[in-house]
Amino acid sequence: MTGFVHQALRHASDGQFRDTAAAFVRDGLHAGDTVVVVSACEITLLAESLGSRFRPVECFDAHDWYDHPSRTLRRYHPYRTRQEPNRRVRVVGEPVGEGRTDFETREWMRYESLVNVAFAGSAHWFLCPYGTRVLPETVARSVTRTHPELVHEPGTAADCTDPAEFGAECDELAPARLPAAAAGIPFTRGRAAVVRRALTAYARRLGLPEQRTYDLLTTVHETVVNAVRHGGGHGVVRLPSDRDHVICEVSDSGAHTVPPHPPLPGHLPPEPVAVSGHGMWLVRQLSDLVTDRLDPSGSVVRLYFRRPGRGHPAAGSVNS
């Protein structure tokens, strides 16, 4: 019995968390499973309770691990290939709840939902603790819709929603108004180099570090190539950056045919030998947050890059 399990543990006290998680870890170690604990502050609670038997557990600080949803999803993937037959990967994964903007919070809710697709068929067993004392009400409620199982809540039925549907709901909440941007950079087929030049100059004006500049160039280029390929051949890049983020918005006028885009584009890692799908995957991995509205009558993809020095996402800049 090593099928995929994704459980939420809503707890009101440290003691409740400690007892459940410790049992979970202990059972895993006993069964020879790989055990991973990602926690913001509760690792010490667990360690106290488990003592020396805690040693084989792989521990990560949640503030590093849960930095950007797409990158976090990728971090859990390597455990798939390391897995021995009939052994599980047990994860106590406690996303950082506090200090997120509404936008970030929504993307983390989407992340929990995507876990159900990303690891379906794997031997991963996620136990996701949510401390209800500090959690925003919206998140606490969404947990029932993003987790197939709830631990210690016999009275509450999990109401797990299809990730595509849940993602669409997240998209509906999206239209945060962006600052007006200066004139955009128009692009057409074969003219992506013009966009790259303009972005390089823009990144230099902002004083972005070199690696971030390449991230910007690469992700916008791939988005533009997608827009040319699927969005009618031309469009415009606007740069409506705000206080916290450098924002690149790529819009096209639409191909006016049924879009061939797959469900959850770029959320799941493509096979290296796949003929497509690497572009959007890369876009999500190299930027900090992405919103996409893919529509045959015109798509809009926004890429967000947290400005240097504007706070760690987990450290919290409460601004929406």
């Binding site: 990728r74 690696q211 690469t218 493509p270 096979e271 690497h278 890369l282 991995q285 190299l286």
Partner: peptide, 11 residues
């Protein structure tokens, strides 16, 4: 380095 990073992310 930025190309290596892309190659790592894509596998």
């Amino acid at each position: 380095p930025h190309v290596q990073r892309v190659m790592r992310v894509t596998g």
